[in-house]
Design a protein around this nucleic acid. Sequence first.
DNA 1: ATGGTAAATTGACTTTAATCAATTAGAAGT
DNA 2: ACTTCTAATTGATTAAAGTCAATTTACCAT
Lengths: 235, 235
Amino acid sequence: MDDIINTLSEAPLFATLTPSVLNDISKNAHPNAHKKGKILFIHGDPAEHYYIVKSGHIKLFRETVDGTQTIIDVLSQGNVFGHTLVFEENTYPYSAEIAESGIIISLPLSDLRDALYNDNTIAINMLRATTNRLRLREKELEHRSTQNASQRIACFFLRHTLQRKNDSLVIHLPYDKMLLAAHLGMQPETFSRALLKLKKDTGIRIEGSSIYLNTLDRLSSYVCSSCSERFPCNG
Amino acid sequence: MDDIINTLSEAPLFATLTPSVLNDISKNAHPNAHKKGKILFIHGDPAEHYYIVKSGHIKLFRETVDGTQTIIDVLSQGNVFGHTLVFEENTYPYSAEIAESGIIISLPLSDLRDALYNDNTIAINMLRATTNRLRLREKELEHRSTQNASQRIACFFLRHTLQRKNDSLVIHLPYDKMLLAAHLGMQPETFSRALLKLKKDTGIRIEGSSIYLNTLDRLSSYVCSSCSERFPCNG
DNA sequence: ATGGTAAATTGACTTTAATCAATTAGAAGT
DNA sequence: ACTTCTAATTGATTAAAGTCAATTTACCAT
C-alpha cells in the first residue's frame, strides 16, 4: 500500500497533497498486471475508474466506424489517465489498450470526486495538469501543419531525450515503430521512409530500435526552425 | 458595470459564481473597442490580463521564424481567453489579434488568481472548461488525419448550426474564408476547391459567404462517417 | 535451434493538398 | 461612380504522404 502511495505522489497531480488526502484518494486503489493487447475500457463506456501507469505502456485511441484508429496518446510510467472524467456521470472519450505489458493502478473516480470538491489543491493541480496537456495538444496540432514526417519524428526524439534528462544521445524507442508512427499521425511506410530521410539529412545512426544522435544542435536546427518555439521547449 | 457582470455571467466559466465573487473578479474589468488588425498581445509577452469577447472576433495564433502562421482558435461573443495563464509568472503561449472589430473586456489575471485560490467553484469551473477544450483539440487532431478538406469544412458547418440552436439551414460565414481556411488547417486555394467539391457531393448551395444546406442528414453522413463520434456531437 | 507470426522495409503507383501564377470579384474610401 | 486594395477563385504544376503489394527482418513460442 505504501508502494501505491509512492507511485501516486510521483505524479505531479498528487505531488503536493497532504498524506491524509493522499490516503483518502488511494484507499480503493488496486494495482493490476496486464498483458499486451488487454483492453481497459472502450470509448463510450461509463467511466468509473481512473488509472496510473506503474510500468508498461498504454495506448489511448479512438476509431471510426470503418475501423480507422487515431492515437490520442501513448502513456508510460507515472502518467495518469481517465481522471478528467471526474465530473458527474461521464463516459470515456477514448479507448485504452495495453500496448506493452505492465502494472496499472486503478482508482475509483468517486473518491477523486469527493476529494476534488473538498480540497482546493487537487482542483488547482488538476487544472494545472490539464492546461499543460491542452498546450501540448495545441502544439501537436501546429506541428501537423508546419512539420513534415521527418521533422515530427526528430521532434519526438528531442522531446524524448529532454524528458529523460540524461546526457546520453542514445534513444531506445519506447514502443514499436507501428505505434510510434500512429502516434505521430502517419502510416508505418511513411515512418520508415521519413526515418531514412532523417538519417540522410542529419547523420543520425539507426540500429533497429536504437537511435544514436550525434548532436542535439543538428537535430534541433532541423526541427525547430518550423516550430513557433525555440529549443529546448517544454514539450 | 452591470453590463460587464452580465457578459461575465454568460460565460460557463463564471455562470455559477455568487454575485460577491463575480464582483471581486470584475472590479478591474475594462471594455475596449478594438479595430480589425489590432494586436492584443504577442506570444511570449508576460501575461497580465485575460479577456472576454463581447463582440467581434479574435484570432489566436502562433508563428514560426519564417512567418508561417498557425491558427489556434478563432473566438467569438462570450468566449474567454488568456485565463489559463492564471498560474504564477506566465507568458502568453500564443498571439491574439482582432480578426473582426469589436469590444473586448480585459481583466487582470491577479484578481482571478486570488479568487481561484479562495473559491473552489472557480477552480472546478475552470477545470471543466479546460477539459472540454482539451477534448475539442483531441477531436480536431483526429479530424486532421481522418477527414479530408471538404469534410473538415462540412464539419465546421454542422458544428456551427448546432451551436446556434436555430433550425435555419442557412449559414453566414462568421469571418472571411482565408481565416476559416487557416482555422481548418488548409490553404485558401484548397478551401476554395474543397468547398466546390462539397457542393458537388452534397448539393449545398453557396452564395458568397452564405451557405444554404438542404438537410443536415446529407451533410452528417458525408462527414461523420469518418469520425469516431456519431452526429450530433458536442463539437 | 527452428518454425511461425507479426513488424518493418522497399517498390510502384495514386491521391491529396501545397505551391506558384494569373485573373476575377468584392469591399472600402474618396 | 471610380479607384484601389485585398479576397477569392481558377489553372497548371509540384511535392508529400497514402495505398497496395511484395519481401525481408525480427521476435516469440515450442
